[in-house]
Protein backbone atom coordinates (compact mmCIF):
# COMPACT_ATOMS: atom_id res chain seq x y z
CA UNK A 1 0.00 0.00 0.00
CA UNK A 2 2.69 2.50 0.96
CA UNK A 3 4.54 1.74 -2.26
CA UNK A 4 1.40 2.26 -4.34
CA UNK A 5 0.84 5.71 -2.92
CA UNK A 6 4.47 6.57 -3.36
CA UNK A 7 4.18 5.74 -7.04
CA UNK A 8 1.09 7.91 -7.35
CA UNK A 9 2.80 10.82 -5.64
CA UNK A 10 5.57 10.62 -8.18
CA UNK A 11 3.19 10.71 -11.12
CA UNK A 12 1.30 13.72 -9.77
CA UNK A 13 4.31 15.77 -8.77
CA UNK A 14 7.62 15.69 -10.60
CA UNK A 15 9.63 15.48 -7.38
CA UNK A 16 10.65 11.86 -6.88
CA UNK A 17 11.67 10.23 -3.67
CA UNK A 18 15.30 10.14 -4.76
CA UNK A 19 15.55 13.94 -4.87
CA UNK A 20 14.87 14.21 -1.13
CA UNK A 21 16.67 13.16 1.97
CA UNK A 22 14.95 10.45 3.99
CA UNK A 23 13.91 13.01 6.56
CA UNK A 24 12.36 15.34 3.98
CA UNK A 25 10.49 12.45 2.40
CA UNK A 26 9.17 11.26 5.75
CA UNK A 27 8.05 14.79 6.61
CA UNK A 28 6.26 15.06 3.28
CA UNK A 29 4.52 11.72 3.83
CA UNK A 30 3.56 12.77 7.32
CA UNK A 31 1.94 15.95 6.05
CA UNK A 32 0.22 14.10 3.25
CA UNK A 33 -1.29 11.52 5.61
CA UNK A 34 -1.85 13.82 8.57
CA UNK A 35 -5.44 12.56 8.86
CA UNK A 36 -3.95 9.24 9.94
CA UNK A 37 -2.50 10.87 13.04
CA UNK A 38 -5.76 12.64 13.79
CA UNK A 39 -7.61 9.34 13.63
CA UNK A 40 -5.27 7.34 15.83
CA UNK A 41 -4.78 10.17 18.33
CA UNK A 42 -7.74 9.56 20.66
CA UNK A 43 -6.99 5.87 21.05
CA UNK A 44 -3.24 6.15 21.31
CA UNK A 45 -3.23 9.07 23.76
CA UNK A 46 -5.26 6.92 26.16
CA UNK A 47 -3.16 3.88 25.30
CA UNK A 48 -0.01 5.81 26.25
CA UNK A 49 -1.51 7.14 29.48
CA UNK A 50 -2.94 3.82 30.68
CA UNK A 51 -0.59 1.21 29.23
CA UNK A 52 2.77 2.48 27.94
CA UNK A 53 3.47 5.02 30.68
CA UNK A 54 2.45 2.66 33.52
CA UNK A 55 4.81 -0.05 32.25
CA UNK A 56 7.71 2.41 32.07
CA UNK A 57 6.70 4.02 35.35
CA UNK A 58 6.72 0.66 37.16
CA UNK A 59 10.17 -0.03 35.76
CA UNK A 60 11.45 3.26 37.19
CA UNK A 61 9.59 2.92 40.49
CA UNK A 62 10.93 -0.62 40.93
CA UNK A 63 14.27 0.98 41.84
CA UNK A 64 12.71 3.12 44.58
CA UNK A 65 10.90 2.94 47.86
CA UNK A 66 7.56 4.70 47.53
CA UNK A 67 4.45 4.71 49.72
CA UNK A 68 2.28 7.11 47.68
CA UNK A 69 2.66 9.83 50.37
CA UNK A 70 6.31 10.85 50.39
CA UNK A 71 8.53 11.47 47.38
CA UNK A 72 10.07 8.17 46.15
CA UNK A 73 13.50 7.30 47.56
CA UNK A 74 16.11 5.82 45.22
CA UNK A 75 17.16 2.32 46.27
CA UNK A 76 19.02 0.93 43.27
CA UNK A 77 18.61 -2.81 43.02
CA UNK A 78 17.54 -3.26 46.65
CA UNK A 79 13.96 -4.25 45.80
CA UNK A 80 15.15 -6.95 43.43
CA UNK A 81 17.73 -8.22 45.93
CA UNK A 82 15.02 -8.34 48.61
CA UNK A 83 12.71 -10.25 46.25
CA UNK A 84 15.22 -12.92 45.35
CA UNK A 85 17.20 -13.18 48.58
CA UNK A 86 14.80 -12.36 51.43
CA UNK A 87 11.31 -13.10 50.18
CA UNK A 88 10.70 -16.86 50.32
CA UNK A 89 7.04 -16.39 49.45
CA UNK A 90 8.03 -14.60 46.27
CA UNK A 91 10.22 -17.52 45.24
CA UNK A 92 7.29 -19.88 45.88
CA UNK A 93 5.15 -17.56 43.77
CA UNK A 94 7.66 -17.64 40.91
CA UNK A 95 7.82 -21.41 41.07
CA UNK A 96 4.02 -21.78 41.10
CA UNK A 97 3.55 -19.26 38.31
CA UNK A 98 6.05 -21.14 36.15
CA UNK A 99 4.39 -24.49 36.91
CA UNK A 100 0.96 -23.06 36.07
CA UNK A 101 2.25 -21.45 32.89
CA UNK A 102 4.29 -24.43 31.70
CA UNK A 103 1.40 -26.84 32.23
CA UNK A 104 -1.66 -24.80 31.25
CA UNK A 105 -0.08 -22.83 28.39
CA UNK A 106 0.99 -25.73 26.17
CA UNK A 107 -1.89 -28.02 27.19
CA UNK A 108 -4.57 -25.44 26.47
CA UNK A 109 -2.82 -24.46 23.23
CA UNK A 110 -2.62 -28.05 21.99
CA UNK A 111 -6.15 -28.79 23.19
CA UNK A 112 -7.44 -25.72 21.29
CA UNK A 113 -5.62 -26.83 18.16
CA UNK A 114 -6.78 -30.42 18.26
CA UNK A 115 -10.40 -29.74 19.18
CA UNK A 116 -10.56 -27.12 16.43
CA UNK A 117 -9.04 -29.64 14.05
CA UNK A 118 -11.42 -32.41 15.14
CA UNK A 119 -14.53 -30.31 14.59
CA UNK A 120 -13.32 -28.78 11.34
CA UNK A 121 -15.03 -31.36 9.17
CA UNK A 122 -18.37 -31.38 10.98
CA UNK A 123 -21.35 -29.75 9.29
CA UNK A 124 -21.59 -26.00 10.05
CA UNK A 125 -24.58 -26.41 12.39
CA UNK A 126 -23.02 -29.20 14.46
CA UNK A 127 -19.75 -27.29 14.51
CA UNK A 128 -21.46 -24.21 15.91
CA UNK A 129 -22.99 -26.25 18.75
CA UNK A 130 -19.76 -28.07 19.59
CA UNK A 131 -17.88 -24.76 19.47
CA UNK A 132 -20.33 -23.33 21.99
CA UNK A 133 -19.90 -26.29 24.36
CA UNK A 134 -16.11 -25.95 24.36
CA UNK A 135 -16.00 -22.17 24.40
CA UNK A 136 -18.73 -21.45 26.97
CA UNK A 137 -16.65 -22.19 30.12
CA UNK A 138 -14.14 -19.49 29.17
CA UNK A 139 -16.78 -16.74 29.07
CA UNK A 140 -19.08 -17.83 31.85
CA UNK A 141 -17.75 -15.54 34.56
CA UNK A 142 -17.54 -17.12 37.99
CA UNK A 143 -18.95 -20.44 36.79
CA UNK A 144 -15.73 -22.19 37.82
CA UNK A 145 -16.91 -21.82 41.42
CA UNK A 146 -19.04 -24.91 40.70
CA UNK A 147 -15.83 -26.87 41.20
CA UNK A 148 -15.84 -25.88 44.85
CA UNK A 149 -19.12 -27.83 45.11
CA UNK A 150 -17.67 -30.73 43.11
CA UNK A 151 -14.63 -30.96 45.33
CA UNK A 152 -16.41 -29.72 48.43
CA UNK A 153 -14.68 -30.83 51.62
CA UNK A 154 -17.77 -32.49 53.13
CA UNK A 155 -19.45 -35.64 51.94
CA UNK A 156 -22.02 -33.66 49.95
CA UNK A 157 -19.34 -32.87 47.40
CA UNK A 158 -19.58 -35.13 44.37
CA UNK A 159 -16.00 -36.38 44.45
CA UNK A 160 -15.92 -37.11 48.13
CA UNK A 161 -19.33 -38.78 47.95
CA UNK A 162 -18.04 -41.02 45.18
CA UNK A 163 -14.86 -41.92 47.07
CA UNK A 164 -16.80 -42.67 50.24
CA UNK A 165 -19.54 -44.74 48.61
CA UNK A 166 -16.90 -46.78 46.77
CA UNK A 167 -15.21 -47.35 50.14
CA UNK A 168 -11.93 -45.85 48.88
CA UNK A 169 -11.96 -43.32 51.71
CA UNK A 170 -13.76 -43.22 55.00
CA UNK A 171 -13.19 -39.52 55.65
CA UNK A 172 -13.86 -36.77 53.09
CA UNK A 173 -10.70 -35.20 51.61
CA UNK A 174 -10.17 -31.51 52.41
CA UNK A 175 -9.41 -30.76 48.77
CA UNK A 176 -8.82 -27.03 48.98
CA UNK A 177 -7.20 -27.08 52.39
CA UNK A 178 -4.62 -29.72 51.52
CA UNK A 179 -1.46 -28.50 49.81
CA UNK A 180 -1.09 -31.67 47.74
CA UNK A 181 -4.43 -31.16 45.97
CA UNK A 182 -4.71 -27.40 45.53
CA UNK A 183 -2.26 -26.91 42.64
CA UNK A 184 -3.42 -29.86 40.49
CA UNK A 185 -7.08 -28.97 41.01
CA UNK A 186 -6.53 -25.32 40.13
CA UNK A 187 -4.68 -26.40 36.99
CA UNK A 188 -7.59 -28.64 35.96
CA UNK A 189 -10.09 -25.83 36.52
CA UNK A 190 -7.86 -23.38 34.66
CA UNK A 191 -7.71 -25.78 31.72
CA UNK A 192 -11.49 -26.06 31.79
CA UNK A 193 -11.77 -22.30 31.25
CA UNK A 194 -8.88 -22.03 28.82
CA UNK A 195 -10.44 -22.67 25.41
CA UNK A 196 -10.92 -19.01 24.61
CA UNK A 197 -9.77 -16.63 21.90
CA UNK A 198 -7.01 -19.06 20.83
CA UNK A 199 -9.59 -21.76 20.18
CA UNK A 200 -11.85 -19.51 18.09
CA UNK A 201 -8.87 -18.24 16.15
CA UNK A 202 -7.84 -21.82 15.28
CA UNK A 203 -11.37 -22.76 14.21
CA UNK A 204 -11.44 -19.77 11.91
CA UNK A 205 -7.92 -20.41 10.65
CA UNK A 206 -8.79 -23.98 9.67
CA UNK A 207 -11.90 -22.76 7.88
CA UNK A 208 -9.95 -20.35 5.71
CA UNK A 209 -7.59 -23.00 4.33
CA UNK A 210 -8.37 -23.61 0.68
CA UNK A 211 -9.52 -27.16 0.02
CA UNK A 212 -7.58 -27.30 -3.25
CA UNK A 213 -4.38 -27.33 -1.17
CA UNK A 214 -5.47 -30.65 0.34
CA UNK A 215 -6.45 -32.03 -3.04
CA UNK A 216 -3.08 -31.07 -4.46
CA UNK A 217 -1.43 -32.62 -1.40
CA UNK A 218 -3.28 -35.90 -1.91
CA UNK A 219 -2.02 -36.08 -5.48
CA UNK A 220 1.51 -35.26 -4.29
CA UNK A 221 1.48 -38.32 -2.08
CA UNK A 222 0.21 -37.24 1.34
CA UNK A 223 -1.11 -40.46 2.79
CA UNK A 224 -2.92 -39.70 6.04
CA UNK A 225 -4.39 -36.86 8.05
CA UNK A 226 -1.31 -36.51 10.25
CA UNK A 227 0.89 -35.78 7.25
CA UNK A 228 -1.80 -33.43 5.99
CA UNK A 229 -1.80 -31.62 9.34
CA UNK A 230 1.97 -31.26 9.47
CA UNK A 231 2.75 -30.47 5.83
CA UNK A 232 -0.29 -28.46 4.78
CA UNK A 233 -2.57 -27.35 7.62
CA UNK A 234 -0.08 -26.05 10.18
CA UNK A 235 2.18 -24.11 7.79
CA UNK A 236 -0.86 -22.54 6.13
CA UNK A 237 -2.37 -21.39 9.40
CA UNK A 238 0.91 -20.21 10.91
CA UNK A 239 -0.40 -16.62 11.39
CA UNK A 240 -3.20 -18.02 13.56
CA UNK A 241 -0.73 -20.24 15.41
CA UNK A 242 1.32 -17.17 16.31
CA UNK A 243 -1.68 -15.13 17.43
CA UNK A 244 -3.09 -18.08 19.36
CA UNK A 245 0.22 -18.51 21.15
CA UNK A 246 0.19 -14.91 22.33
CA UNK A 247 -3.32 -15.33 23.72
CA UNK A 248 -2.49 -18.70 25.33
CA UNK A 249 0.69 -17.43 27.02
CA UNK A 250 -0.98 -14.31 28.33
CA UNK A 251 -3.75 -16.48 29.74
CA UNK A 252 -1.36 -19.02 31.23
CA UNK A 253 0.49 -16.40 33.28
CA UNK A 254 -2.57 -14.67 34.62
CA UNK A 255 -5.10 -16.91 36.27
CA UNK A 256 -4.70 -15.83 39.88
CA UNK A 257 -8.46 -15.30 40.08
CA UNK A 258 -9.29 -19.00 39.89
CA UNK A 259 -6.93 -19.83 42.74
CA UNK A 260 -8.39 -17.09 44.92
CA UNK A 261 -11.95 -18.22 44.21
CA UNK A 262 -11.28 -21.90 44.94
CA UNK A 263 -8.50 -22.00 47.52
CA UNK A 264 -8.82 -18.58 49.09
CA UNK A 265 -6.16 -15.92 49.51
CA UNK A 266 -3.62 -16.72 50.76
CA UNK A 267 -3.89 -20.39 49.85
CA UNK A 268 -2.82 -23.01 52.42
CA UNK A 269 0.95 -22.66 53.05
CA UNK A 270 1.05 -20.41 49.98
CA UNK A 271 0.94 -23.67 48.00
CA UNK A 272 -0.80 -22.03 45.04
CA UNK A 273 0.48 -18.48 45.56
CA UNK A 274 1.28 -16.90 42.19
CA UNK A 275 3.10 -13.71 41.20
CA UNK A 276 -0.31 -12.15 40.53
CA UNK A 277 -1.25 -12.75 44.16
CA UNK A 278 2.04 -11.36 45.41
CA UNK A 279 1.51 -8.29 43.29
CA UNK A 280 -2.00 -7.82 44.62
CA UNK A 281 -0.77 -8.30 48.16
CA UNK A 282 1.98 -5.67 48.04
CA UNK A 283 0.37 -3.31 45.53
CA UNK A 284 -3.33 -3.44 46.35
CA UNK A 285 -3.18 -4.06 50.10
CA UNK A 286 0.15 -2.93 51.57
CA UNK A 287 0.75 -0.07 49.13
CA UNK A 288 4.48 -0.77 48.92
CA UNK A 289 4.55 0.76 45.47
CA UNK A 290 8.28 0.40 44.78
CA UNK A 291 8.38 -3.22 45.83
CA UNK A 292 5.23 -4.19 43.94
CA UNK A 293 6.56 -2.37 40.87
CA UNK A 294 9.58 -4.66 40.99
CA UNK A 295 7.20 -7.65 41.10
CA UNK A 296 5.20 -6.23 38.19
CA UNK A 297 8.38 -5.64 36.19
CA UNK A 298 9.54 -9.20 36.71
CA UNK A 299 6.14 -10.57 35.65
CA UNK A 300 6.19 -8.26 32.63
CA UNK A 301 9.64 -9.46 31.55
CA UNK A 302 8.63 -13.11 32.08
CA UNK A 303 5.54 -12.71 29.89
CA UNK A 304 7.23 -10.75 27.12
CA UNK A 305 10.27 -13.06 27.21
CA UNK A 306 8.27 -16.29 26.88
CA UNK A 307 6.16 -14.73 24.12
CA UNK A 308 9.25 -13.80 22.13
CA UNK A 309 10.73 -17.26 22.61
CA UNK A 310 7.58 -19.04 21.50
CA UNK A 311 7.17 -16.76 18.49
CA UNK A 312 10.70 -17.72 17.41
CA UNK A 313 9.94 -21.43 17.83
CA UNK A 314 6.60 -21.30 16.03
CA UNK A 315 7.98 -19.49 13.02
CA UNK A 316 9.86 -22.73 12.28
CA UNK A 317 6.68 -24.86 12.06
CA UNK A 318 6.54 -26.86 8.85
CA UNK A 319 9.90 -25.62 7.57
Amino acid sequence: MSENTAVKTESVKPVSRKDMSKLQWTWKEMKKHKMGYVMIAPFFILFFIFTVVPVLLSMVLSFTSFNLLEWPKWLGFDNYLRLFLDDDIFLTAVKNTLIFAIVTGPVSYIMSLFVAWFINELSPRTRAIVTLIFYAPSISGAMYSIFSIFFSSDRYGYVNALLISLNIRTEPIQFFQDATYVMPLCIVVALWTSLGVTFLSFIAGLQTIDNSLYEAGAIDGIRNRWQELWYITLPTMRPQLLFGAVMAITGAFSFGGIVTALAGFPSVDYCAHTIMHHLEDYGGQRFEVGYSSAIATILFLMMIGSNMLIQKLLSKVGE
Binding site: T51, S254, E280, G283
Partner: peptide
Amino acid sequence: MFVSTITGV
Protein backbone atom coordinates in the same frame (compact mmCIF):
# COMPACT_ATOMS: atom_id res chain seq x y z
CA MET B 1 1.47 -10.10 25.46
CA PHE B 2 0.90 -9.03 29.05
CA VAL B 3 -2.07 -8.53 31.36
CA SER B 4 -3.39 -5.30 32.77
CA THR B 5 -2.60 -6.41 36.31
CA ILE B 6 0.98 -5.39 35.59
CA THR B 7 -0.03 -1.79 35.04
CA GLY B 8 -2.41 -1.78 38.01
CA VAL B 9 -0.16 -0.20 40.62
